[in-house]
Amino acid sequence: MTKILIAQDVSKVFGGLTAVEKVNISIEKGQIAALIGPNGAGKTTFFNALTGVAPATTGKVLFNPNGTEIDITKTGPGKIAKMGIVRTFQNIRLFDQMTVSENIKIALTKNYRESFLDTILRTPKFMKEEERVEDWTNDFLKKFDLYDVKDVQATNLAYGMQRRVEIARAVATEPKVIFLDEPAAGMNPEETNELSKLIKRLQTEFGLTVVLIEHDMSLVMNLAEKIYVLNHGKLIAEGSAADIQADDAVIEAYLGGEHHVKSR
């Protein structure tokens, strides 16, 4: 199995505070991996370092989409997205003023082939491109069960649907790796169930490598083939769901002092 994304000794320091300390992970291609840990463990900070939103202070991030490793430690988020690593956000970030269909089309910006002159003169080439994108978007929306709401403004959708649109938009950029930052937050069990199926499909149908941060343990244990546990900025455990559930350090991190006292 090839490692598609590798973090080597990644640290992130804010002022004097070390939020993430020398974390090493390597994600296998086509895997669903999860990053868990109590609140404030540094999960999102680590995510931000991997996706270029806030680069690591020290350490290296390597991306290996097709056989050669590329150092993306200091690469900006826009470029990283173009290279094939996309993400969704903890607090959903859709383009509120736009329809669902337009939100998806935004992700296709780089795939257009018409020129500025085509655009302002509305040449047949422009019309053909618009049509091609329209058709592609419609097909794509059907795969995500979003076709029926394609002309609805994003803000007017229910929470679970907004999340779905955000994931679809990320997938529309045709990435290799997708990062999901707490996708199940604020969802009811039914919505979580739907989400779980969707994430599985990202792996099977779209061939994506998925990395998720999640607090919903049933979702994580259900989906993730590899789990990394972060506490106080440090990686305290990694392994399969069964390994993690049996790990003392993890149990202590989650149950904290209480457990500690009891075990004494």
Binding site: P77, A81, F89, L94, F95, K105, I106
Partner: peptide, 22 residues
């Protein structure tokens, strides 16, 4: 056109726009 859409996206949420490769 896609230019106008990209601009609106940046206007609405620059971080999200960047995250999809704009």
């Amino acid at each position: 056109s896609r230019a106008g859409r990209a601009l609106q996206a940046i206007r609405d949420d620059e971080i999200a726009a960047e995250s999809v490769g704009i």
